[in-house]
């Protein structure tokens, strides 16, 4: 994972609530075996409407998206995070996120910043003409004005993002603990370990 600390730039003021992952990337884009190139399909239905915020010239290459409640609900497709990255988005600010999307965002180094609705409303206003800064180290969103909006972030995720840590690499270092768990499990609940063998015996 690449290191993430401060994200600064224009923010696309989308503002919609319940933006589901089918809206972020429709299913017909999912027929790929790669993580690349999905930006072309990102927010496809929204972008078909004339005057949509994504196609406003000022927001070309903007690193931040501002949305409404329950962003990323629905399908678990990580293609949503890949599509956003591919179009240059590295942070989303919203009042709330779906559990699966916030995990997928984190794994791809996208900051999912939760702020109360009234602060999101203020940022939607500011974003029309001004840049926004997200400082992960100090956990605060600022504007060129006096706004300072502190946000919460899971300490483990913050640590991984600031240091660019590979979660799988970290977990593989815990191999001894996993082996111990597997031994205990094999003693106490041995039937958990036999699905494939059961099938072959059955067949």
């Amino acid at each position: 994972m690449k290191q993430v600390s401060t994200i600064s730039g224009r923010a696309i003021p989308l503002g919609l609530k319940n933006v589901d992952t089918d809206v972020i990337i429709p299913a017909h884009w999912l027929k790929t075996v790669s993580r690349e190139g999905l930006g072309k399909g990102a927010f496809e239905t929204i972008r078909q409407a004339p005057g949509n915020p994504f196609d406003v010239e000022d927001f070309a290459g903007a690193p931040i998206l501002i949305a409404g409640d329950n962003f990323g609900c629905g399908s678990s497709r990580e293609h949503a995070a890949w599509a956003m990255l591919d179009m240059g988005l590295t942070a989303v600010i919203a009042p709330s996120f779906s559990d699966i999307f916030s995990g997928n965002a984190f794994k791809n180094g996208i900051l999912a910043v939760e702020l109360p609705q009234e602060q999101v409303d203020r940022l939607l206003e500011v974003a029309k003409d001004h840049p926004i800064t997200i400082d992960l180290e100090n956990q605060v969103v600022t504007t060129p004005f006096q706004d300072r909006f502190p946000f919460e972030v899971d300490p483990f995720r913050k640590h991984c993002l600031l240091n660019g840590l590979d979660e799988i690499g970290l977990t593989l270092e815990r191999d001894a603990a996993i082996e111990t768990h597997e031994r205990v499990r094999a003693d106490s609940l041995p039937w958990l370990d036999t699905p494939t063998r059961n099938r072959r015996e059955h067949a």
Binding site: S76, R77, I100, G103, N104, K107, N108, E167, T171, I178
Partner: peptide
């Protein structure tokens, strides 16, 4: 529960997930 592809990779490699 459903997981993203990075988590699919994590489970394939380690048979575990990091969760709260």
């Amino acid at each position: 529960f459903g997981i993203g592809t990075s988590e699919v990779e994590h489970v394939l490699a380690t048979q575990t997930l990091l969760l709260r």
